[in-house]
Structure formats: structure tokens, C-alpha cells
Design a protein around this nucleic acid. Structure first.
Length: 642
RNA sequence: GCCAGUGUAGCUCAGCUGGUAGAGCAGCUGAUUUGUAAUCAGCUGGUCGGGGGUUCGAGUCCCUCCACUGGCUCCA
């Protein structure tokens, strides 16, 4: 007999060799039906595998994150089975579960699988799922596994096998499909009730651009049709938040073929947002001791040779311009210009930390396939600043920058993000990274300490640092789920050396400062794209281009409405007057869909009482009040930044 | 850049197997003067992404370029 400990701490005795499914059944039939896999001593396994020793277990279902992973991984196999049946000779790469579903990378050879094939595959999967095929786990020696895939001619699986240790290789089979796989899997296909293949795209084998591009098919499956319906509904809702749609509807920005891809044109509403953000950033930065500078959009090649960017970054820069025998580049980053400002006069330790800030305009030649609305563009304006400090000041300066981030995040209500701490890979010193092991270790430790001291949860990712130092990034997700770096905060001990930036210490010695690159409000482009989605177009009062719409009921109310507008303008409230000969219902509808926070309805009653009837966007009638009271309400909301 | 797809009026979209463009909204004009999410009528508007080809004839078929979309790769 063995002792099995459950998540609630209770312990039961079972025969040695009992399977996960038996254990689930012993608790309840319901659980046994829902169970997809089992966690045994922290390791997720098939329900059918025997448990031979005392163990702590947890039966996993669809409701568990790891249960979903099992479910989707098995679904990927089901999709592969369907593809093999429909497109014989297809070779298979990898087919993992992901956050929202699964994918399989396949090589259909000469056959082309396009979007219209997805429904066919979906149907086949549903048919196959109903056959209730068991997922059968087998083990075989590597030599036999190699022989199997050699016979099948699947070079991808052979490629994967090469990296596996000798010994027993596990396979899973369901129906006629057999796959090299670590597992685990659901007991049988029947549990997969609803299938949706979401999209199809290319993906390089093993993520390497120099490898062959395979066809990747993404899908998602559910144990109930209702879950799928809900998921599809959620996708629809997300599309409504897409900044590209909102940006068009709310007249924030546009693109034009004659201007060029990735070069946004800011419409008046967008320009207003930019100016409000700049006002806010400048005010905040001034409070925190930053000095504002301004630099040109281009510079000589030499500047980027000195900075070290050119070899690393050339592909991302616009092609050079030749002027009078000299090569110029459009700037892709502001730091070299700022370093030159630091270098423009002898610096004393008494001046440090020196914080130079600029909403600098940069141009980056992003590959055409990478452009994405406002989130990924070729002209961008960065909320940039460079802080030059001594090693002793570094930790407190870095901390101050973090505090600035948190302050901003509080103002904008940004709570769904991941703080990512990127460190270097010691074996790549001198290649990918500047060769200064001591400074890497020292600064990485300082950054880590700041994060821990501030109690900020973070994820550490090795080998993702900038070439000049470690960094932290704030990762966010767009409405349609694409990941972006919103803000960044980077340490740089390399460029001060390259530019030979120095300051005089209190001992009258020359020393190199450390530089912190920071862009807490990202770029105007990405930040406004993010805000559009974050607020679903309903900007807080201080950012709303129009704070209220004045809606006269009949034409005879227009003169009073104009008076109201004048009065509001004097009080600093931004309004828009709808003097069309339209019904009040229509005017309200247009203001509602235009996401204007407040509507002021003016009819006979209001005119007589010298008041306005206030309606709040999305909420409805709020009753009447005087214009002064309304202006006061708006001013208060602006002040609270709500 | 790569793979797959899309590209018809300002916007959202019809247009079957090739016979030479259509709706709703927006816009303009007029009527209407409205009480909390679309008043009515008339009119304007497109070298069907650009170029080339096949054909008696191309929005529809082929080639090519451009842009966009979904991913991959890469990054604020």
C-alpha cells in the first residue's frame, strides 16, 4: 500500500500501481470525467500511469492552468492526426500548448495549406475526437525512434531526436497518428468537444531565420461548445478595443500611402493627446530634477561609430545621406546626441546626477512585416532621458526612476504588465556584450537589489540585456494579445567609455559616469496606442480632447448654447457644440459613440433656469446643474487626473 | 525580410462560373425644430491599390510591384 497526499492535506491509502484515473474515480465520478492529467510530486503526468510510491498529487482539470496545457497539447496532436489524414506526407515540427490554445508547425511539402483549409481540418478534428481514441504512451530506445522517423522521412523529428539523450524515448499514439512527445496527454480524444483553428502563418524551424519556414497553424479547443462561443465573443470585444480601429473612429491618427508605411499622421485629436502627455511628462520630470534639452534629427556617421550603434543597429536605421562628402544618418536613438551635450563642457561631481530629458524624434527602419498600427512605427517620439551619475549615486538614481514609473502607472491605472529584468550571458562577453564582467555583475546586482527593495515583482530573463548593460522593461499586451515593451530603463557603462565622458571627482581625478537610459512613457506612438486600448477610447478628463458636447434640442436654443460654450471656455473646459438640425436622440448617439465624457443638453427648461442637463457617457442622465457647477466638476476631475 | 491572406466610394461591405459597378452610413442641398443612443427626401461621389499580360471583352483569370491583415524573425 502507498500513501497519497491530496492538495487539501488529506492522506489516503491505495494499492501500489494505482493509476491517476483510479485515484480520481475514488474521489468522484465527476472528477474522473473532468480529469485531464495528474500532478505527482510536482510533475505533470498521464492519468493512466501507475503510481508506485507514496506521493503528493493533484488531479488536474480544465480549470487548472496546467490542465489546460495538457488539454491543448493533446489537441495539437489531434490536429496533426487530422492533417496527416487530409494531407498525406506532411512532416511535423513541434506542436506545443501556448497561453491561448496551441499550434503545430508542419511542412506539407508541395501542398499549400491556406486559410480556407482550416475549416476542413477543423471538421476532421471534430470527427476524429468523437472516435474516442486513447492517447497511448510507449517508450522505445533512441535507435528505434531514429529508425521510425528515418523511414517516415521526417527530418524535423530527427533533428529534435538528435538533442535528446540516449535511452528511452517516449511516443504517443492516438488513432493512426504517432508522435515523438514527452507528454502528458488527456486519456482520450472525446474530451475535446469544441475546436477552432484561429490562424495560419509561417514560422521558421526552431525560430531561426536561416532555417526553412514551416506552416504554423494555431488553434484553440474547449471541453464545451459554450466555452468556445464565449472565447469568440471575447475576441470580438477585443477587436473593438483595437487602437487601429479606435484611432480611426475617434480621429486620432491616420496613415497615407504617399507619406509612407509606419509614418503616422497625427490628427488634431491625436496631436492634443501628445501635447497633454508632454505637458504632464515635462511637469513631472521638472519636479524630479531633469533638465530639458533639444537635439537635431540627424547626425554624422561618426557619431554612431563612436556610440557603437552602427555595427549593431545599421539595419534598423534609414539609409545614409551623403552631403558634401560626409555621411549623415537620421537618428534612431537620442543617447549619442545627449552624450555630446554632457561632453560639451567639463563636468564636476557637483553637477551629478545630471539628468537630460528630451521628447526626441527618432526614425527606425523597421522591417515591413513588423509594422503594427501605432505600436510599431518608423517615426517615433521618445519620452527619453539620460541620467549621468557616479557609481555611488547609481542605486538611488535607478530607484528614483523606478518610482517615477510606478507614479505614472498609478496615474494611468496601468496594472496589467510584467516587469522584465534582462541580464547578460557571461559566455557572450566581448561578442554580444561589452567585455566588462565586473561592471556587469555589479550593476546587475544593484538593479536586482532595487527591484527587491521596492517590492516590485519581476521576471529575470538571461541573455536579453542591451549590449551596453542590463535593463528592465515593462511588457504589455495589445488588445489582440500581441506583446510589446512599453517602457524601458537601461543601465549603460559602455557608452561613457566610448565617448570618453568624464567628470572630476572631489579628489580631482577624472572618472567615467554611469548612464541610465529611461523612457517610462515609452514613445508617443506606442503609449497613445496603448492608452487607446487601455481606456477603450474613453480617455480620462485631463486627456479627453473634447470634455463635453453641448447639445441644443432645437435651433432656438443655439444662442444660449453658444453662451454656455463661451462660459465653459473661460472656465477652461473643452467643449464641442452640435448645432446641426438633428434630433436630440441623434446628437446624443453621436456624442456617445464619439466617447465624449459628458453631454450637456439644452432645451426650454434649461434655458429658463440658466442650467444645463448633464448626461454622462455610458451612464445616462445625471440631472441639471449650473454651468459653473459643471465647470467645477470637470476641473475637479482634471485635477484628480480621472 | 519570410509564409499565408486581403485590397471595390470618406467608412462598413455586396458584386455567381469574365459581358464594362451597387447598398447602408458619412458628405452636400432642402424639408423638419425635435427632451436623453440613428427625422425624412433628393443629390454628389469610384481610371474597382499601381503597372503589365491573356481575351472580342477583366473588378472578376495570370504576372509583377505597393499597401494592409495574421503570424515568424527582430525591437520603444
Amino acid at each position: 500500500m502507498i500513501q497519497i497526499t491530496f492538495p487539501d492535506g488529506s492522506v489516503r491509502s491505495y494499492e501500489s500501481g494505482v493509476t491517476g484515473l483510479d485515484v480520481a474515480k475514488s474521489i468522484s465520478q465527476g472528477l474522473a470525467k473532468k480529469a485531464v492529467s495528474i500532478k505527482v510530486n510536482g510533475q505533470v503526468r498521464d492519468l493512466s500511469r501507475a503510481i508506485n510510491d507514496d506521493a503528493t498529487i493533484q488531479i488536474l482539470t480544465w480549470d487548472d492552468k496546467e490542465g489546460k496545457a495538457t488539454f491543448w497539447h493533446s489537441s495539437a496532436h489531434l490536429m496533426a492526426e487530422a492533417i496527416e489524414a487530409l494531407y498525406p506526407g506532411t512532416k511535423f515540427g513541434i506542436g506545443p500548448a501556448i497561453d491561448q490554445g496551441f499550434y503545430y508547425d508542419i511542412d506539407p511539402g508541395d501542398q499549400v495549406i491556406g486559410a480556407e483549409d482550416l475549416q476542413r481540418i477543423e471538421k476532421k478534428m471534430q470527427e476524429m475526437a468523437q472516435k474516442k481514441s486513447d492517447y497511448i504512451r510507449t517508450e522505445m530506445p533512441k535507435t528505434k525512434a531514429v529508425a521510425y522517423f528515418t523511414e517516415k522521412g521526417d527530418q524535423y523529428k530527427l533533428d529534435l531526436l538528435e538533442d535528446l539523450e540516449d535511452g528511452q524515448i517516449t511516443f504517443y499514439q492516438q488513432g493512426d497518428f504517432t508522435d515523438l512527445c514527452r507528454g502528458p496527454h488527456v486519456p482520450n480524444t472525446e474530451i475535446i468537444k469544441a475546436v477552432k483553428l484561429t490562424n495560419i502563418s509561417g514560422a521558421y524551424w526552431r525560430g531561426d531565420e536561416s532555417n526553412k519556414q514551416l506552416t504554423r497553424i494555431y488553434g484553440i479547443t474547449f471541453p464545451k461548445q459554450k466555452d468556445l462561443d464565449e472565447y469568440l465573443l471575447m475576441l470580438e470585444e477585443a477587436k473593438k478595443r483595437d487602437h487601429r480601429k479606435l484611432g480611426k473612429d475617434l480621429e486620432i491618427f491616420t496613415f497615407d500611402d504617399d507619406v509612407g508605411p509606419g509614418l503616422p499622421l497625427w490628427l488634431p485629436n491625436g496631436a492634443f493627446l501628445i501635447e497633454q502627455l508632454e505637458w504632464f511628462a515635462k511637469k513631472t520630470e521638472e519636479e524630479m530634477g531633469y533638465l530639458r534639452v533639444r537635439t537635431p534629427h540627424i547626425a554624422k556617421e561618426n557619431l554612431y561609430l563612436t556610440s557603437g550603434h552602427l555595427p549593431y543597429y545599421k539595419e534598423s536605421m534609414f539609409p545614409p545621406m551623403e552631403l558634401d562628402g560626409t555621411t549623415y544618418y537620421l537618428k534612431a536613438m537620442n543617447c549619442p546626441h545627449h552624450h555630446k551635450i554632457f561632453a560639451s563642457s567639463p563636468r564636476s561631481y557637483k553637477e551629478l546626477p545630471l539628468r537630460l530629458a528630451e521628447y526626441g524624434t527618432c526614425y527606425r527602419y523597421e522591417k515591413s512585416g513588423e509594422l503594427f498600427g501605432l505600436m510599431r512605427v518608423r517615426s517615433l517620439q521618445m519620452n527619453d532621458a539620460h541620467i549621468y551619475c557616479t557609481k555611488d549615486q547609481f542605486e538611488s538614481e535607478f530607484k528614483r526612476v523606478n518610482e517615477l514609473y510606478l507614479r505614472y502607472f498609478d496615474v494611468f491605472g496601468i496594472d496589467k504588465y510584467v516587469m522584465r529584468f534582462s541580464t547578460h550571458e557571461p559566455s557572450k562577453l566581448g561578442k554580444k556584450y561589452v567585455d566588462n564582467p565586473a561592471l556587469w555583475a555589479e550593476t546587475e546586482n544593484m538593479v536586482r537589489r532595487v527591484l527587491i527593495d521596492s517590492g516590485i515583482p519581476y521576471e529575470e530573463v538571461p541573455d536579453e540585456a542591451a549590449f551596453y548593460g542590463p535593463k528592465i522593461d515593462i511588457q504589455i499586451w495589445s488588445a489582440i494579445g500581441r506583446e510589446f515593451t512599453l517602457a524601458t530603463n537601461q543601465v549603460d557603462f559602455a557608452q561613457p567609455l566610448r565617448f570618453n565622458l568624464t567628470f572630476t571627482t572631489s579628489n580631482n581625478e577624472n572618472e567615467h559616469p554611469i548612464v541610465i537610459h529611461r523612457a517610462p512613457l515609452s514613445t508617443h506612438e506606442r503609449f497613445i496606442g496603448f492608452l487607446l486600448e487601455h481606456y477603450a477610447g474613453k480617455f480620462p478628463m485631463w486627456l479627453a480632447p473634447k470634455q463635453c458636447a453641448i447639445l441644443p434640442i432645437a435651433d432656438r436654443h443655439i444662442p444660449f448654447a453658444q453662451e454656455v460654450q463661451t462660459q465653459l471656455k473661460k472656465a477652461g473646459v473643452r467643449s464641442q457644440l452640435d448645432d446641426r438640425s438633428e434630433s436630440i436622440g441623434r446628437k446624443i448617439r453621436d456624442a456617445e459613440t464619439g466617447k465624449i465624457p459628458y453631454m450637456l443638453i439644452i432645451g426650454d427648461k434649461e434655458q429658463e433656469a440658466g442650467q444645463v442637463a448633464v448626461r454622462k457617457q455610458g451612464e445616462g442622465d445625471q440631472g441639471s446643474m449650473t454651468v459653473d457647477d459643471f465647470a467645477q466638476l470637470i476641473r475637479q476631475l482634471v485635477e484628480d487626473m480621472h
